[in-house]
């Protein structure tokens, strides 16, 4: 699916993120200007403690920006009521779900909550969307299992299916590849890439898998002490952004392979 005129789903304007208390203001990053287009897979990378989570929390309206605005579909995130926001933005978080006694189908069906009636009954259309999400993530064989029976990798696929069932333009995932083995890391990110292409959804994830993100993402947002740059991965390599990501004493970025090497 090719978009003639790539529609911008999420846009930030002079966003400044951080924490404000009565006494002091801690700025994590300022002048954040990013645009996420329809059908793109976007990776958010940066060292530990650089503020990836703070940025994601601000973009998802969990915390307020210090200044600037986040627009989703050209409407300020502040103007959405919680239910309308749930219809344009779905999340996959790092935290564990509270009840593992849910079946996979029930869990994914909870993604339909913003659309169901007061008691949460699923209409035929809701069921179709849930089944479609199950097909898109290849978890047909898991759907009658209970969540406590799943491995970490399987559970992550289920959580992605739940976000798909929420039927939003934008899906944001917080470190979807942590706790997974090398194969499943690649599998999940590859799945996200395919979903972005097939469904036309915009998918933003934070990750420490820089090698994989360079290979798979349409756009990368790189956070570096106080500055935030976003562009296509190859252009960022040319600009030498990755060399400045970490202290230079231990690892070095290899431009030709697009990956980090341990210094010998």
């Amino acid at each position: 699916m090719k978009e003639q005129n790539p529609h911008i789903i999420l846009k930030t304007e002079d966003l400044s993120i951080g924490y404000a208390s009565k006494k002091a203001k801690t700025v994590v990053a300022s002048q954040v200007n990013v645009e996420l287009k329809k059908g793109e897979l976007i990776g958010l990378i940066g060292a530990n403690g650089i503020g990836k989570s703070t940025l994601l929390r601000t973009l998802t309206h969990v915390q307020k920006p210090l200044s600037g605005t986040v627009f989703i579909n050209e409407k300020s995130i502040l103007d959405y009521n919680p239910l309308d926001l749930a219809k344009v933005l779905s999340l996959v978080l790092t935290e564990k779900i509270a009840s593992k006694n849910l079946s996979v189908f029930e869990l994914i069906a909870l993604g339909r909550q913003p659309y169901t009636n007061w008691v949460g009954n699923l209409s035929e259309q809701d069921k179709n969307i849930v089944n479609q999400a199950i097909l898109q993530t290849n978890i047909e064989d898991l759907q009658h299992k209970k969540c406590f029976e799943l491995s970490d990798g399987q559970l992550q696929k289920v959580m992605i299916a739940r976000a798909l069932a929420q039927d939003t333009d934008l899906i944001i995932l917080d470190e979807p590849t942590s706790h997974l083995d090398m194969y499943h890391k690649a599998y999940i990110l590859k799945l996200l890439q395919r979903l972005a292409k097939e469904t036309g959804k915009t998918i933003l994830f934070s990750s420490h898998e820089i090698d994989l993100a360079i290979q798979l993402c349409d756009t990368l947002i790189v956070m570096n002490a106080g500055t935030v740059v976003s562009d296509q991965p190859c252009k960022l390599i040319e600009q030498g952004v990755f060399e400045t990501l970490f202290p230079k004493d231990l690892i070095a970025f290899d431009k030709n392979t697009g990956s980090f090497r341990v210094k010998k």
């Binding site: 969990v62 919680p82 219809k87 999340l91 978080l93 564990k96 909870l110 913003p114 169901t116 008691v119």
Partner: peptide
């Protein structure tokens, strides 16, 4: 009875429930 839907949403945990638009 009025809480049935929110109770089911809360099975995901409070942050997920919030992301589904639950007050």
């Amino acid at each position: 009875l009025c809480s049935i839907k929110s109770l089911n949403t809360l099975l995901l945990g409070e942050n997920y429930a919030k992301s589904l638009g639950l007050n």
